[in-house]
Design a binder for these strands. Structure first.
Lengths: 249, 249
DNA sequence: CTACTTTTTGCAAGTTTTTGCTGTTTTTAG
DNA sequence: CTAAAAACAGCAAAAACTTGCAAAAAGTAG
């Protein structure tokens, strides 16, 4: 194997995983650890990657990502948020769930757009209050410590008496067969009520979460009207969802 | 696992939850507590986070209360909060309003004290959720943009069906003759309902606000059971309030 | 083809970094 | 004040790194 090839592989791995272990590289490339070490040293000198004790990382590695794991996720969420915001129009009454993707949506709503938003998420509510033209109504109830999300009978009852234009459901797990799934039973109850209360339901999902299934089902895909991902609507990854009467953007 | 990965995880957790325990980190990352300690020490030296006894916190933590700039005021509020916390006991069901003094109370509640707290204040709710033993129930409704406080019929109705041990009313204006006064009519409605729902009502007031009168009256002093100020209970400034059947501390 | 140089690679010895463990001191909470 | 938890300092083993060197591979010129 050529040195060029080796270094290309190393760079690819760094770009893909944002970090590599020298041992793994030596193992895979079937050369001594010293050779890999020298390669990485060279690449580091050319500023193509950053050498650290025991491995190498990409440059933006230490940048903060709210979502444990990878930095690309954040930019995907921003893309999704952009598409979602484009679906909103003046005067609408909207229901928003919690989750980091919905937070991005909240951040991205134009300052001048008048909306009425109901939400059971403390974080989303907090963010929405930055917008002077948005009337924020919090769906009160028992708050979950981790998610800072209100659950329980109070929330569900309030939702049952509500009729809104749009429901925007954030982070959930999505699969063509299993539909929308969650691991928290209490959250499910709230999300179901949210879907019932809305004329249309939009689901936001980064492509990583497509085809993932969790413990409990919130609803199946027939209950959903629009699916927003960071992918192009024609992407083959979305093929499994085409049989449903879904609007993909 | 690379040191960089560990440190990135630590930083992400700090940013996400505003505070982390070294034990939790060591546990999750599957390294000794010393290693985590060293990592946190390094990150602290780089000003990426703040090291505290037993864990680490992010820098901007709890900065959503705009600093009133006045250090004396702040320390007075802390004194009041200390006194107030001493009035709480295990298992109580408490109602808390908003305001900066109440925020101090929320910060000061012991981590191990089990309570159930109802509140219409986003900030107070957010702060209380840091305490694992406190069940937080948000009184949902239309949120005021400035105060981040829920008002309106929904809140009042919920309160009318509630019966709690204690109501802690934060920043209001207090005068022996005029009683408790406010300038926001909607907030008044909520505070009245809060007082009705509680067996006992505690009022927190820095001495600066004693003998001030606002536009509308929330209630008169006969509805209040305890008045907490930063002053000594024997202070002559409190003389005007002694004719009432008030507990001064 | 051969002799020579240059580059690349692996190895070994010694150094540095990292990590967990020890016992001791400091801080915290009841 | 006392007991428990956390922080600290020093040590030792393991892992990673460095350097120098020699063998193998590749290139070059006569």
């Amino acid at each position: 194997m050529l040195k060029e090839e080796r270094q290309k592989y190393i760079l690819d791995q760094v770009h893909l995983h944002h970090r590599v272990l020298l041992n793994d590289l030596a193992d895979f490339l079937d050369v001594s650890i010293d050779t890999v070490r020298r390669d990485v040293k060279e690449l580091a000198k050319e500023k193509k990657l950053k050498k650290v004790h025991g491995g190498a990382t990409s440059f933006g590695f230490m940048n903060f990502t709210k979502d444990d794991g990878n930095i690309y996720l954040q930019s995907k969420k921003i893309q999704i948020a952009e598409k979602t915001v484009s679906l909103l129009s003046e005067g609408q009454v909207v229901l928003m769930s919690g989750g980091t993707t919905n937070m991005e949506v909240a951040k991205m709503i134009p300052r001048k757009l008048p909306l009425t938003v109901f939400t059971p998420s403390l974080h989303v509510a907090m963010q929405l209050l930055e917008l002077p033209e948005v009337e924020v109504i919090f769906l009160g109830g028992k708050l979950l410590h981790e998610a800072k999300f209100a659950v329980g009978g109070t929330v569900v009852n309030a939702l049952n008496q509500l009729r809104v234009d749009l429901c925007i459901l954030g982070t959930g797990y999505l699969d063509a067969e299993a539909g929308l799934t969650e691991f928290d039973w209490e959250v499910i109850q709230v999300k179901r009520a949210m879907i019932r209360a809305a004329k249309k339901t939009i689901i936001l999902s980064v492509s990583d979460k497509l085809h993932s299934v969790q413990k409990f089902q919130t609803c199946d895909l027939t209950a959903v009207h629009t699916l927003v991902t960071e992918l192009d609507p024609s992407d083959p990854m979305l093929d499994a969802f085409r049989p449903f009467d879904l609007h993909l953007i």
